Simulated scan of single mutants.
Amino acid sequence: MFSLTDYTYDLPEDWIAQKPADNRDRSKLLHLSRETGKCSHHTFSDIYDLLSPSDVLVINNTEVIPGRLFGKKDTGGKAEVLILDYGNRCKANPSGPGDKKNGNVTYNCLIKASKRPRPGALLFFDQGLKAEITDFNDGIHTVKFSCDDNFENLLYQVGNMPLPPYIKRNLSQNEACNDKISYQTVYASQKGAIAAPTAGLHFSEKLLEKIKSKGVKVVAITLHVGYGTFLPVRVSDIRDHQMHSEWYSIPGGSADIINHAKADGSRVVAVGTTCVRTLEYASDDNGYLINDSGNCDLFIYPGYRFKAVDAMITNFHLPESTLLMLVSAFAGREKILEAYQKAIDKKYRFYSYGDAMFIE
């Protein structure tokens, strides 16, 4: 179970969702029992019936920034820039050179161009936004942006959502699917992610209110999904893989509610692998949390003992990905792969804009 090839499966390309369901909570939901491996098929809004009034539902309130910028180099060639540390930089230094409210900010970025720009090179974007490459190290460029006014306001005007590469878009036809709305949870409030916590995309405001009216406590934590979410595992033995760290925060009120649930024997239900990793990283051996913030680099794969999370809602993940390894650790690799095959047979939609699983 430690070989990378243990986490592969065949998926027809047509099963990769290119846009979300017409209504967030009308996507499909596969219900998987960890104990028996039994599967049943539902609509996502049925999660209301699958949750118990005593449950605590933990959501990730990170907000995806439109941090994908298309511009030109001073030599005339095209350049695509992806801001990597927007949330981290602003949290760590809210009034310094990384302040998003200033006209001059510096971030770490990925740059795609026909020829790698060197330090000192200039980049030009729409509406007067400019940038200078100041450093390059280990595949990452340090980029100093400059504009006449508020950088964040301008970024939200000219930037694009950093969709995963398997979601194809014709830029002239983006309005056919408004990714700035659909690739964002309805409860997103903390700016900083470069990918959505996709399990949360299935919740509508109406469904969340209905769940709360049942007695379920809904609490928010933050993990800014980062660069590591795009990185493939490149080692044959998965135990040799090193996760990139991502900034997280657990407010005191959320920690208290989760800890009371653990003490009472109630379930902690994590919405998405980002919540799972954060809760497990920040908990003690008994699954109790403290209000804290920092950088999470926890890699969960089979053999891991879960301490805080009792059930999870998650999407269907890419073959050989760390996310597939995490859900395999939670429910068992064989049960997960069997459930994935059943989902394929039932024509579930896969990946970020795809359907969901509830594992309990």
Results as ranks from 00 to 15, higher is better:
residue 245 S to D: 14
residue 200 G to Q: 15
residue 234 R to V: 09
residue 248 Y to G: 00
residue 263 A to M: 05
residue 240 D to T: 07
residue 221 I to K: 03
residue 216 V to E: 00
residue 219 V to M: 06
residue 223 L to T: 01
residue 263 A to F: 02
residue 193 A to N: 10
residue 241 H to G: 12
residue 253 G to I: 02
residue 216 V to W: 01
residue 257 I to N: 00
residue 237 D to V: 02
residue 194 I to D: 02
residue 264 D to Q: 14
residue 201 L to S: 05
residue 223 L to D: 03
residue 231 L to Y: 04
residue 231 L to V: 10
residue 241 H to T: 09
residue 245 S to M: 11
residue 260 H to Y: 11
residue 232 P to G: 10
residue 219 V to Q: 11
residue 197 P to F: 01
residue 196 A to W: 00
residue 253 G to A: 12
residue 211 I to N: 10
residue 244 H to W: 00
residue 225 V to M: 14
residue 230 F to C: 05
residue 251 P to L: 02
residue 225 V to E: 11
residue 261 A to M: 02
residue 204 S to V: 11
residue 239 R to S: 15
residue 194 I to G: 05
residue 248 Y to N: 00
residue 249 S to R: 10
residue 260 H to E: 15
residue 261 A to W: 05
residue 230 F to E: 07
residue 252 G to L: 08
residue 246 E to C: 01
residue 213 S to P: 08
residue 203 F to G: 06
residue 199 A to S: 13
residue 197 P to A: 08
residue 248 Y to I: 04
residue 195 A to M: 06
residue 241 H to K: 11
residue 225 V to Y: 12
residue 235 V to D: 04
residue 260 H to V: 06
residue 215 G to K: 09
residue 195 A to L: 12
residue 201 L to N: 06
residue 232 P to N: 08
residue 251 P to H: 03
residue 245 S to F: 13
residue 229 T to Q: 07
residue 207 L to D: 05
residue 251 P to I: 03
residue 251 P to N: 06
residue 228 G to H: 05
residue 241 H to W: 12
residue 199 A to F: 04
residue 192 G to M: 04
residue 245 S to P: 08
residue 261 A to P: 02
residue 207 L to N: 12
residue 229 T to R: 00
residue 233 V to G: 01
residue 232 P to C: 07
residue 240 D to H: 13
residue 247 W to Y: 14
residue 250 I to L: 09
residue 236 S to L: 09
residue 233 V to C: 11
residue 257 I to Q: 03
residue 233 V to P: 06
residue 239 R to Y: 01
residue 214 K to M: 03
residue 194 I to Q: 09
residue 256 D to F: 01
residue 259 N to H: 05
residue 260 H to Q: 15
residue 221 I to N: 00
residue 229 T to V: 04
residue 234 R to K: 13
residue 217 K to Y: 04
residue 194 I to T: 11
residue 209 E to V: 00
residue 214 K to H: 03
residue 216 V to A: 00
residue 195 A to R: 07
residue 233 V to H: 07
residue 242 Q to K: 15
residue 258 I to R: 02
residue 222 T to E: 05
residue 237 D to T: 00
residue 198 T to F: 00
